[in-house]
Design a protein around this nucleic acid. Structure first.
Lengths: 341, 341
DNA sequence: GTGAAAGCGCTAACAC
DNA sequence: GTGTTAGCGCTTTCAC
């Protein structure tokens, strides 16, 4: 049925070893035999079986990628970045989505290991103890995206969420705001939830501003709807803050919706800051002040780290690539409450 | 180094065949041996090598996916759909991105075949003759997403772009518009470019409306920017249409930008219709009338077809899954120029 | 029930 | 330079 190296060898009147040598250019072969072999390959339409090859070489040339979801610009950006590096290095990608199934990540790690991935890249929001344990006994080199794994000295690519959130809120403070609320993401998401929340508190603290619980709300997700509901909660407080920091752009847009409904003008009566600088952020009216960072870059960096590991380059324990961020100031926060200092 | 089936067999004091039988439940094994083996597996942390298994079984349980780009909600939606079906059927995904490298798809088809994919799903906008040729000699079952391959009787999952565009433009006509322009995508994209353009012309023709070349512009891509420039061109004409159909939402949003700059109110002086119903469409002001369809569904259907093929179910030649669409009427076209008939 | 042995398609010693 | 051969780790006859 399918043509194998034997068929090619027979047709060219040589041994299979010689065919292999030509195909892999692993050893010199005489001009004449080489031509006969190449011709036989041509005629038979022979395509080497990569599975058999992987088995011997003990490398598959495959990288396993695990992400929580794909229809989310953040994760698809990551994948794009990873794919770019993989392609440059002649690696191919396996992709699996882990969301909505507890324990799926652990299962996927096992499967990827059984499938002999050369490396694994894991982007998970919920790095619980079981998952850490699974990582510890993982026999495949891996890189984590999105958060540092304290304890494990796993290489990772991360954003300084806390610092970025701090800067975003500090910007509001510089604009004269002293009453600032936050629509936060869930705390189990260490990176986009907890760290951004901490950055918010850091900024208040540094400025000596009070933390008012009624102006802070933790949502269950990061969607438009969560922002909408979050703003509803905040507006339900007896007093109203003059600015609100949202854990991501979609939430900020949701919050904006609610403000519109209530007829509260942004930024005149309420300044708003988001996070991520999705395409959304500059399309909405008023355009959103937000923290720009590049998931694509993150993917690039993570895959870059993995490539170094696979090349056998010695990485310092716990090497982490820090991905840069920038505050992008737009209309939603551009009005000073008082003259700048 | 790595523990193999031999190690397990030795430790349990049985032959490797028996270990295999227990692990695959392929033949009955006595309670006692089974327990010893399971224990040995446990103790050694043995994980069967899926590559070796694939080699013998001549199936990898892998399906190869090829898409032009990933950071685009349409394609990531597709992948999400494919992944869902794959997971249900215990298949895993390889993913490769083909854009910006001519001939890359053909190369990927070869690579996927060499890597013994059980099936392939191809989403390509540019199905040129070379690619068709490559598909003809492909020895792996495959499904195409996005367009019918006339000639090849390849299974596919498609949207009726022409019909949907026809309906969108007919809606404008019903709203009283008689002077309608279009910002079109590139014609080499048969589905989102050519077919939508044809639907536009069909609608004009059916209504007996004139086709004015100065109100129609073909762009090179499907981005915001293309829509912006497209509207610029149309507004440059001596007269101005009262409505414009855009080949996709992003282009419509770009067009909107231009109209805003020129101070032309939508829908009062210019109605606008998009296509795709991206999240964008209902966030922008005014909210966009558009054609809704589900890339996720399309991925589901395509993968579903592939699963049937892999199960050996006989498919009628050229079976195509048609994915449904709906016109979603929103503010951008909600003003009648004249009373409805 | 269980084990020995024959491969799957290929690469890499090892001989000549 | 080239061919022979021994596996890679596993499943699956085929005997017992």
């Amino acid at each position: 049925m399918t043509v194998t190296i034997r068929d090619v060898a027979k047709r060219a009147g040589v041994s299979i070893a010689t065919v292999s040598r030509v195909l892999n250019q692993s050893k010199p072969v005489s001009e004449e035999l080489r031509n006969r072999i190449l011709q036989a390959v041509e005629e038979t339409g022979y395509l080497p079986n990569a599975v058999a090859r992987s088995m011997i070489r003990k490398q598959t040339g495959l990288i396993g990628v695990i992400i929580p979801e794909i229809s989310n610009p953040y994760f698809s950006g990551l994948v794009q970045g990873i794919e770019t590096v993989a392609k440059q290095n002649q690696y191919y990608l396996m992709l699996a989505v882990s969301e909505k199934e507890p324990g799926r990540e652990r299962e996927l790690l096992r499967i990827y290991q059984a499938r002999q991935m050369d490396g694994i890249i894991l982007a998970s929001a919920r790095l619980d103890p079981e998952l850490r344990q699974a990582l510890e006994k993982l026999a495949v080199p891996y890189v984590v995206i999105g958060q540092r794994l304290t304890g494990l000295n796993a290489p990772c690519a991360v954003l300084d969420n806390r610092r970025a959130a701090f800067e975003a809120v500090s910007h509001l403070i510089r604009m004269g705001h002293r009453e600032i609320g936050m629509v936060s993401g869930p705390m189990w998401d260490l990176a986009s939830g907890k760290e951004r929340y901490q950055g918010f508190r850091d900024a208040l603290e540094e400025a000596g501003l009070p933390f008012r619980t009624e102006w802070v709300t933790e949502r269950e997700g990061f969607h438009l709807h969560d922002g909408y509901e979050g703003m509803k909660v905040i507006l339900g407080a007896p007093e109203r803050p003059t600015a609100v920091f949202c854990a991501c752009d979609r939430m900020a847009v949701g919050a904006l919706r609610r403000l519109e409904e209530r007829g509260i003008p942004v930024p005149e009566e309420m300044a708003l800051v988001g996070f991520d600088d999705e395409e959304l952020a500059s399309i909405v009216k008023p355009r959103l002040t937000t923290v720009r960072h590049s998931p694509f870059d993150m993917g690039l960096k993570a895959a870059g780290l993995l490539m170094e590991i696979l090349k056998g380059l010695p990485l310092t324990d716990g090497t982490c690539a820090l991905v840069k961020h920038d505050l992008v100031i737009r209309e939603s926060s551009s009005l000073s409450l008082s003259p700048r200092p």
